[in-house]
Design a protein around this nucleic acid. Sequence first.
DNA 1: ATGGCTTGAGTGTCAAGA
Length: 257
Amino acid sequence: MKIATWNVNSLKVRLPHVLDWLSAVQPDVLCLQETKTEDKGFPFVELESAGYHAAHNGQKTYNGVAILAREALVDATRDLPNFDDPQKRLITATLSGVRFVCAYMPNGQEIGSDKYAYKLAWLAALRDWLRGELARHPRLALLGDFNIAPEDRDVHDPEAWREKILCSTPERAAFRAFLDLGLHDAFRLFDQPEKSFSWWDYRMMAFRRNLGLRIDHILLSRTLADDCRACMIDETPRRLERPSDHAPVIAEIALPK
DNA sequence: ATGGCTTGAGTGTCAAGA
């Protein structure tokens, strides 16, 4: 089973890229972030024609998350039940006996800002909710845009980013707290090229110079991690005209039938 | 120098992203 996550930065703008990518890569599951649309603007018909079911938790202009899957999605739920939040950042569904959690975690803007406090509170609520969700669903995958670079090796210039947003000690501690629940960073289960990133700023020719961060992740519970055979970042769509600033992350799981 | 692009909303130009 091939599972993936991609922050598309507007699904309306990126739909051609997404459809081409689905056709080329043939993932079984694709988690999307920043669809930036309400359900009425969500391309259910186009995705169905491409062979994908979809569950969406959207809003106008900002945020919005979706799970696309070849199989029908079961028990889809939206938002964190323990965090009152108008921002649409979470959707969850089951298929193939795996609980999929798709998250667009807050950016935080700047250390010490209100948005930073909101980010840390949101991350803590996600961790608390995940503890119970993992108990109910031992086979669980958390995919999404975490807006956290877990370690210095996930940052093109660690000194420039020291204690900056996406890299601060409290944010990295929140990431560690996910691992402490028994989740595993699929990307780090394998040898990877140095300077592997999933996001590059649109400005300053950052992609061409590989000035990026690894902030999009696939975390797997123990049993899924044991069955994980590969994990990679696909930079191909980042090279297209009018790309998302994020690249998809893909993990291959050998599912016992 | 806190810039630099890109998006959505909306038709001015700004908020937000990371």
